[in-house]
Design a protein around this nucleic acid. Structure first.
Length: 503
RNA sequence: GCGGGCAUAGUUUAGGGGUAAAACACCAGCCUUCCAAGCUGGUUUCGACGGUUCGAUUCCGUCUGCCCGCACCA
């Protein structure tokens, strides 16, 4: 009997099909053929999702003295995204080279016709720079010699790629490879989902769905400091939906266009030992993931090398998880310096400086940011919990969820359903349990079948009302992982469940 | 975004230019004193749109979705 630890590492196919079959996750808008990059959580999925979020909020906000929560609007002032850097390099039309896989800004990529003796013999292209005209004429000359053309070479007239005519896209060579035919037409490259505030589609009404929740904490830094008596070091936490338009959805809910983040900005003094604080948060977050049932041997750390850090980042370590499709980032813990507050202070013109009573000094705090995706944890929990074993020669599929995460905590069954006394007693117990936990009642089919149904959706406990219940009031409590049974009276049952289920 | 593969019931799959099938699952009933038992009955399927054809789920095209590489990304 396999009671303690999962050994199976399921395929994505297995997970996806289980999610569909048991109502954890459906494809969005499925009856219309699906909507790529979006997902719907079904009756069991919504419970698991809620358990993840509740656990995070409970452990990060309620169980700490130094963290408070906020909940910001998804649409914020467009200037927020200007200051954060999300609007910038990404709003211009882009050109991809299919061969070299390089991406260029269309307005920085120039091209020109090469005309010899009044006849077009081809095109040249180059990236914007100080002496492009000279470079262009050199390229034109070498093309002329390569093709062995005679006659007068005209000076190249350079135009940005944005002005190329549609028939020219396949004739213009890629600046990387020098070969024609691999450049795409200029395309708008949108990091963020764009929308309009108000009924009129006016340029001045452009707004964006947030691509991350973090900016909400920075923008509200002043408000929180002024109203909640927090003192550095302290954190502001938020969970909520974010949207990214530029990604390619892949790997089920791992990477989708609409996802839910749980983020915290932990503000510290500029002269604090940020490396130690960063390390503490990494350890604390790793332990948290273990506590909600992620398998230890599938968790890992990825320390980003200094030369690969984003410009606003001093250090970043990912907590990774070994998914069926590979080791991937689960949670990022970044030391972000004071980049964001500085940006918003400048852009808004409002002081975001914090006055430190102890130090008698004003400063912009630095920040440690643990940021994790709800959907990524969801998937990691499923992968950790999935197991197959054998009970008396029969194959069994079981989700070994931590009781705190299980969508349904207890299944209640009358041993047989054609004995009214058993049915009545179990309905009564079901109603009582229901007031405290999500529970399920099932009377259909043989008792073994009902146990297995509950195993497959990860219900940790089954309670069966049998003939002995009628005599002395005790019930059978069956454990999902071991399938062992014990007898308890009602008081003992509630006590037992309370200990196991609540953190 | 680029390249390749795939699309039949809730799931896994068979089939094939002429009334679409199996297993499991699910629902109802009977039976059942603890691990997917049995019996009876039942629900549900050719991703969408066009074309060829007397007739298309099957052949062709377009779209959508899914899977696998590469790129991008939390």
């Amino acid at each position: 009997m396999n009671g303690s630890k999962s050994v199976i590492e399921p395929s994505m196919e297995t997970i996806v099909s289980l999610c569909k079959r048991r109502g954890f996750i459906f494809q969005s808008s499925e009856i219309y053929g699906g909507c790529n990059g979006f997902f719907d959580y079904g009756p069991l999925g919504v419970e698991l999702r809620k358990n993840i979020k509740d656990a995070w909020w409970h452990d990060i906000v309620h169980c700490r003295e130094d963290v408070v929560g906020i909940d910001c609007s998804i649409i914020m002032h467009p200037k927020v995204w200007q200051a954060s850097g999300h609007i910038g390099g990404f709003s211009d039309p882009m050109v991809d080279c299919k061969e070299s896989k390089l991406r260029y800004r269309a307005d920085q990529l120039f091209f020109g016709e090469v005309i010899v003796a009044g006849e077009n013999i081809g095109y040249i292209s180059l990236l914007e720079n100080g002496n492009m005209q000279t470079e262009a004429d050199e390229k034109a000359d070498s093309l002329k010699r390569k093709l062995g053309k005679q006659g007068l070479l005209e000076k190249v007239v350079l135009k940005p790629y944005t002005e190329a005519k549609p028939h020219e896209y396949i004739l213009i060579p890629s600046p990387g490879t020098g070969k024609a035919g691999s450049l795409t037409p200029p395309r708008d490259f949108n990091l963020m989902f764009q929308t309009y505030i108000g009924a009129l589609r006016d340029e001045s009404a452009i707004a964006y769905l947030r691509p991350e929740t973090a900016q909400g904490m920075f923008v509200n830094f002043r408000n929180v400091v002024d109203t909640s008596r927090v003192k550095v070091p302290f954190g502001i936490a938020q969970m909520g939906r974010s949207f990214r338009n530029e990604i390619t959805p892949r790997n089920f809910v791992f990477r989708s266009r609409e996802f839910e983040q749980m983020e915290m900005e932990y503000f510290i003094a500029p002269d604090a030992d940020w490396e130690k604080l960063h390390a503490d948060w990494i350890e604390s977050r790793l332990n948290w993931h273990k506590s909600i049932g992620l398998r230890e041997e599938l968790l890992g750390l990825d320390v980003h090398p200094k030369n690969k850090l984003a410009h606003y980042s001093r250090a970043c370590t990912d907590i990774t998880f070994k998914y069926p499709f590979g080791v991937q980032e689960l949670e990022g813990i970044a030391a972000r310096g004071c980049f964001d507050l500085t940006q918003h202070q400048e852009a808004s013109g409002k002081s975001l400086e914090y006055f430190d009573e102890e130090k008698k000094a004003k400063y912009l705090p630095h920040v440690i940011e643990p940021a994790v995706g709800v959907d990524r944890i969801f998937l990691a929990i499923l992968c950790s919990a999935y197991d197959e074993d054998e009970i008396e020669g029969e194959k069994r599929t079981v989700l070994r969820f931590h009781p705190r995460m299980a969508p349904i905590k207890v299944g209640v069954f009358p041993l047989v359903k054609n004995k009214p006394e058993l049915v009545e007693k179990s309905r009564n117990l079901y109603k009582k349990l229901q007031r405290r936990w999500p529970v399920a009642y099932d009377a259909a089919g043989a008792i073994g079948r009902r146990y297995r149904r509950m195993d497959e959706v990860g219900t940790p406990f089954g309670v069966t009302i049998d003939y002995e219940t009628l005599e002395n009031g005790t019930v059978t409590l069956r454990d999902r992982d071991t399938t062992k049974q014990i007898r308890l009276n009602e008081t003992e049952l509630f006590q037992f469940l309370d200990e196991k289920i609540n953190p």
